[in-house]
Design a protein around this nucleic acid. Structure first.
Lengths: 346, 346
DNA sequence: GGATCGGCTGCATTCGCTTGTACGCAGTGA
DNA sequence: TCACTGCGTACAAGCGAATGCAGCCGATCC
């Protein structure tokens, strides 16, 4: 059906086939094996031959065919970054996505690996992902922001493919991961509010099928425990809009609250808007603390007090973990420290 | 150096080789060709045989090997998304990146294509990109946010690989693209400020090696022309911090300015912070208009008046353009309309 | 001077799959 | 009954590169 461009719109030199190993060998007057050895930098090649081959390579502009190489070596030099995709329509400018994907890609490219980006959304697409990985397109995979209900991690772990996770998974022991100290960070945030003498401290939680949200909520509760304060919880999903809505609900539930700990900065930003609309001053009337310390936290009015989680570090660390797993066959999970950053909002 | 896992940490069933076409054929008692035809959904297969083959496939859990398939078909079903990467260290939560990569990935996966994400940063990495594409790893590529100085577009265009660009390139005619109406949008923004009776209208420009920044700056100048107002320009690089700094500089240059058009929302957000620090009220003292209408524009205080550019649309459109190019051998560039969104800041 | 050794090369096989071609079989018309 | 269609199937030839193995060479040793 395709092929020799019968009268297609592209005319002229229809991309004369790229030169092959064979062509280079012929040009250099040596065997294919020798060319292959030169290309792969094997030391068992006479300097003179190496020269001749290199000359032929540059002359012909030879580049080894990836598919052929993958086929025979059974390796692809490619790593999949698998990101759970929010339901369609909900296209968000999630800073997490940008930071993580970018940092991980950099680390992988530095290690000479190629990156295959996979969005795991619907069930259907998840089946595709499984097929894709089973087809041997990649040497390993890195999971990003999987929720607890997702069956993908378990499936992947069973394939025998080296896999690591960016963030702890609900099901323990499936694969190594790099996470940050959500519990410690959230505790510091709430403690800071307590230290300020805040009496009614609410929280806006993330989606509870994600461990980061669970950890942060639990730490909030644990830190409040024994202080005589009750916990006031609203549920969000880590988006700005959900933060704004949750804040509205919190104000309804307890109009006298004087502090809010949002489980991430995006929701904190949403909460700030609701508070402004409600005529509450921050931090005088209500103190707000976020989590993550995304760049935007520096630009809110007032600037956001938050917990710094080293996202770039975490992504790079996860990548290195995978590379280690690939090299050694094993790797140990890592927890990165978090730190309170005090600005204006609390 | 590697290979048969002499005494590596991974023990036990070392992933018994995946079944091959051959194995399925043997199990089903037919030839490999028949299995291949069934797998590829060719109609010239008897229903009975198809059944038997399918049974064997599911029984053995067969998944065709990607590399082998790519090798013989000379296609990879993979598209590269090539994003110019800011210099290391400068890891940003660029909303553009998230939106574009996500939208494009979705569109590609919907079309059954796999996505290869490539960060083009240093010169060295750019050479790698070229090699990668020449190695036949992908069927086509999509360029994102290339600056004018980047030689990559020209190189790629010469390889004969189908390539499209997200956003117009400085060098015209190299490849089709999808852009949005930067000129029209910027004109609307500035006109809005004029309509308000603003007298001293400044602008914060983006990096001038990008066409989007050029277009927006030119439209600013053209719109001001003939109104008796002079143009006041500061240079940014599309980041928040650069917006904040540029705003500081503008206030130095002309303390009496009463309006600013920032070439994107991120810089507008930075400008808002500087204005707040300088004690200027927005919009009473200084009106601010941004560009892009990223989600964050809804959450600034005051909410940002801006020009909506359909980023997700643009990314999806660029993807479809590439698919069309792949299918037809040609495709026409597209310009998407932009629209002024009036909120509180102007 | 002849056997041995070590360093390089080239040959042939292999990876797993697609596809052009030859061929078998049953059904049809003469 | 036989040649003729046609549909479907099996066979075999690659796709392009990596690699174990044999063989060639000159150099070394006795």
């Amino acid at each position: 059906m395709l092929g020799n461009a019968p009268l297609g719109p592209i005319e002229g030199v229809r991309a004369m086939r790229r030169p092959t190993l064979h062509a280079v060998a012929a040009r250099a007057g040596v065997s294919k094996s020798s060319v292959s050895r030169v290309i792969n930098g094997e030391p068992t090649v006479a300097a003179e031959i190496r020269q001749i081959v290199m000359a032929a390579v540059t002359e012909l502009g030879y580049v080894p065919n990836g598919a052929a190489r993958n086929l025979v070596t059974q390796k692809t030099n490619t790593i999949a970054i698998i990101v759970s995709d929010p339901p369609a329509g909900l296209v968000s400018d999630d800073p997490m996505f940008a930071m993580v994907v970018r940092a991980a890609s950099r680390e992988l490219e530095a290690a000479g690996k190629q990156v295959s980006l996979v969005l795991a959304g619907s069930d259907e697409s998840r089946a595709r992902v499984e097929q894709y990985l089973a087809a041997g397109h990649v040497d390993g995979a890195m999971l990003v922001s999987m929720d607890g209900a997702d069956p993908l991690p378990a499936v992947l772990a069973r394939t025998g493919l080296p896999v690591v996770s960016h963030g702890r998974l609900s099901t323990p022991g499936l694969m190594p991961y790099v996470d940050n100290d959500n519990v410690g960070g959230a505790a510091k945030a709430v403690q800071h509010l307590l230290d300020q003498g805040r009496q009614r401290i609410a929280t806006i939680s993330g989606p509870l099928d994600m461990t980061a949200a669970q950890d942060r909520l639990n730490a909030y509760r644990d830190t409040l425990k024994g202080t005589g304060r009750r916990s006031i919880v609203a549920l969000g999903d880590f988006t700005r809009i959900s933060g704004a809505e949750a804040m509205r609900q919190l104000l309804d539930d307890d109009p006298r609250l004087d502090a809010v700990f949002a489980a991430n900065d995006l929701m904190a930003i949403g909460a700030l808007r609701t508070l402004r609309e409600a005529g509450r001053r921050v931090p005088e009337d209500v103190a707000v603390v976020g989590f993550d310390d995304i760049e935007a936290a520096l630009y809110t009015a007032p600037a956001l007090t938050t917990v710094r989680s080293p996202m770039g570090e975490q992504a790079a660390g996860t990548t290195r973990l995978l590379l280690e797993l690939l090299a050694n066959g094993s790797a140990d999970s890592v927890i990165l420290p978090t730190e309170l950053v005090i600005r204006e909002s609390a």
